[in-house]
Design a protein around this nucleic acid. Structure first.
Lengths: 216, 216
DNA sequence: GCCGAACCGTAACGTACGGTACGGTTACCT
DNA sequence: AGGTAACCGTACCGTACGTTACGGTTCGGC
């Protein structure tokens, strides 16, 4: 083996490297701003030299961190498209709950703040990584569910992307922007469940075939 | 008059100070990251000493800038609550168009990025200022419209805040977060109009009284 | 014409932080 | 045991930037 290469973009970090990235995440959540290389090295009990050898520079470290968190979140199940309305509703509600849980988690908030700050400077593409693994990933996962619902005659829409974006809006509403801006908005788990159910019902009211969808 | 006080939080900046704040805004939009005191002084053709005398420190300058932009946006009209469905729909559509126009403007994007970055460090409350003059301000302006609609029997909801948040979600969907993260999302004016109309129709489908609301 | 206040332009200071260098330690290989 | 590679801890360097200080200029009031 040659000397450890600079974390070749694609392949999985070693266990030790994962520990470092977890240190970055925890530091990001707790200290917010003070995400300095020195602080990371101290928190991860490693030397700055190692950080630079492994990740190239600060940007590389942040990119690896975002990828690492993305990989962890992406390790979810894959919903099998279903045919009856109850299962469809459950599927949608599940997506909504997952999404609300993710965007209201401290890790997601810190990560999005970081990526947004980075999008301001043109230097790197943390923003697109976060988008690809957040907003767009969930869109891709939900699309087959929606289209299966249409095949089964449960939903009516022309463009699944448009339908998804409506669902997205009904679920997220003003939650993410408020949290990112530091609003002290908190979610009890049952609130998330209630919001997810409401959004799902509203979506079915808008896009469900008349046979079924009715709200309370 | 004593020597110019440090911009007493509340009162309006002088014309010259407004010019400085406009320089900050333009710099923020164009350069994103490089919002340094030196750059501001150069752009505004004033001395750093003056900046510090007027605004105290960097944070004070940014706060004043956010307030200044907020005041400019807030200078909108006040819709008179209306009684027939067509006017109500127009009102809602107008709000939706305004909101979409605002959040997709370069100034808003830059300002929100700045405030979000600041919300990460606990130092100041730019985030709450932006929230108060963005999300919450429009909520307060829309509420009387919604409640007038309910009085007139055109809308049905229990909590106007909940109804508004649904409208907010239907209008904004994923637009703001995508723009903040640097997605190359653009709006032609007619797209904004179409989106606003769609969101309004959807909202009326969800909350309109059965007598009228039906979508195409 | 003179004074002082406000302001411009720029130089100077202090610090924080990204990045590098280096000596010491551990651990593995032979 | 000896050699070597990875890594820790820390000292060090250069720079960017917030903040302050200062000399020079403009301008309104007397």
């Amino acid at each position: 083996m040659t000397s450890t290469p600079p974390m070749a973009e694609t392949d999985e970090p070693t266990a030790r490297q994962q520990a470092v990235l977890d240190a970055v995440l925890s530091l990001m959540v707790e200290e917010g701003d003070q995400l300095t290389m020195t602080a990371v090295a101290r928190r991860a009990s490693c030397s700055k030299e190692t950080l630079y050898k492994w990740f190239g520079d600060r940007d590389g470290l942040l990119t690896a961190t975002v990828r690492w968190q993305a990989a962890r979140v992406r390790a979810g199940r894959y919903d099998r498209p279903t045919l009856d309305i109850a299962t469809l509703r459950d599927s949608l509600k599940g997506f909504a709950e997952t999404w609300l849980t993710v965007i209201s988690s401290p890790t997601s908030i810190a990560l999005n703040r970081l990526a947004i700050g980075h999008a301001a400077s043109r230097k790197s593409n943390l923003g697109s990584i976060v988008l690809a693994n957040g907003r767009f990933a969930i869109g891709e996962r939900l699309r087959p569910v929606l289209e299966a619902g249409r095949e089964a005659g449960l939903l009516a829409f022309e463009d699944s992307e448009t339908a998804f974006r409506t669902f997205f809006g009904l679920v997220g509403r003003d939650v993410q922007i408020r949290l990112l801006l530091g609003d002290g908005l908190t979610f009890a788990p049952d609130e998330i469940a209630r919001d997810a159910a409401r959004a799902t019902d509203q979506f079915l009211t808008l896009y469900g075939r008349p046979t079924t969808a009715r709200r309370a």
